[in-house]
């Protein structure tokens, strides 16, 4: 008797779980989106769901490398992902992306000319730009003297005020630019020089952080930080004492774009999503919410005055005349790692 009872219970559980699963399967088509953390206005997703009568499953990642590992290892299938420039270059090289069917994405025309056919995707076959920006220095006017160049981050008077990025690449780029080298250099001598610079700077640094930088600077725990321009916009909104500068030596110009991985299950819907995201009013809504800069002029026009005319989000051509875009570093990544560990093991 007991045994029978158990069998029945087991059966019921199995059937129940099966029905739950199939119920999921019968629902509306699902779109899997994988984007940076805190990088979209969730309202936009809701609008998409309603308009196209679909379900969006949204997940986020912290670094390009996290994203790369997930996509490359398989096991999870995303329909739309948002890598940055150099990662797109790498993914194209490794044949991880599918070409976009431009016929399904008419809004591609709305993108400003200077944001298409860039080096990482020369014929613009694979990617549709989402946001762009620069890397620069943010400082608190009430706490420290103004900074204008990367070299200022080596000035003794800012001791224990400086927060650097906890990112091998971005922080090495700061040192390389300070020295007047290309941040895409493959020259070991130049990289060693940059390492020496960063070791020299380390006693002045308050901490090396990721996204926590925003809270620390806004909360005035430190006066100087290296940040991405979009974050700077948000931070200045929260604390008007802050000021963002693009350093004189030049900096990194970056792009995050929407692409479709080979493993995507719903390419058609993914293209609809990309097209939707490129609508000026949607792009504007996102840009207003996250603070980053839209590559669509028509969207910029729809933004509130303070952001539309912000030199942080939309610098003049003169301000970004000596910028560089990151190139795929795969061949030199082990050296970056060694250099970074050397810096981080210094007392």
């Amino acid at each position: 008797m007991m045994k029978n009872k158990k069998m029945i219970i087991l059966l019921v559980i199995t059937i129940l779980s099966l029905t739950v699963l199939t119920a999921c399967g019968e629902k509306k088509p699902t779109l899997n989106v994988y984007n940076w953390g805190d990088y979209i206005d969730k309202e936009v997703l809701k609008e998409f769901e309603e308009e196209f009568d679909v379900k969006v499953r949204y997940e986020d990642f912290g670094t390009n490398e996290d994203l790369y590992v997930k996509v490359k290892q398989g096991g999870s299938s995303y329909d739309v992902i948002f890598p940055s420039d150099y990662m797109i270059e790498r993914m194209i090289k490794e044949d991880l992306l599918v070409k976009l069917d431009k016929y399904n994405i008419p809004n591609m025309d709305k993108i400003d000319d200077r944001f298409i056919n860039l080096d990482y995707d020369p014929a613009n076959e694979y990617s549709a730009p989402y946001m762009w920006g620069t890397v620069g220095i943010i400082y608190n006017k009430t706490m420290v003297d103004p900074l204008t160049k990367w070299a200022d981050l080596w000035d003794e008077k800012y001791k224990d005020e400086i927060i650097m990025l906890k990112s091998q690449r971005d922080t090495l780029a700061v040192a390389l630019k300070k020295l007047g080298y290309s941040m895409n250099t493959r020259d070991m001598g130049e990289l060693e020089e940059a390492k020496a610079e960063l070791i020299k700077q380390k006693p002045l640094v308050y901490s090396y952080l990721g996204d926590e930088i925003k809270g620390e600077i806004v909360g005035e725990n430190a006066g100087v930080g290296v940040v991405w321009s979009g974050d700077a916009v948000t931070m200045i909104r929260q604390n008007p004492n802050l000021e963002y500068v693009i350093p004189e030596e030049g900096t990194n110009l970056w792009f995050d774009a929407m692409v479709i991985p080979k493993s995507a299950e719903n390419k058609e819907l993914a293209e609809k999503f990309i097209n939707f995201m490129l609508r000026p009013e949607i792009s504007a809504k996102n840009a207003d919410y996250i603070g980053y800069s839209t590559p669509i002029s028509a969207a910029r026009e729809l933004l509130p005055e303070d952001i539309k005319n912000s030199l942080v989000a939309y610098p003049t051509d003169d301000m970004i005349k000596n910028v560089e875009i990151f190139k795929d570093p795969t061949d030199i990544i082990a050296e970056y790692d060694r250099i970074w560990t050397d810096i981080m093991s210094e007392e």
Partner: peptide, 24 residues
């Protein structure tokens, strides 16, 4: 530690999450 001082755990994490060198 504010990312200023790497411990062995950090270096291992770095291999999997940043460098992508699972062997090392």
């Amino acid at each position: 530690g504010g990312g200023k001082y790497s411990l062995i755990g950090n270096v291992i994490e770095q291999q999997f999450r940043v460098t992508g060198d699972w062997h090392f």
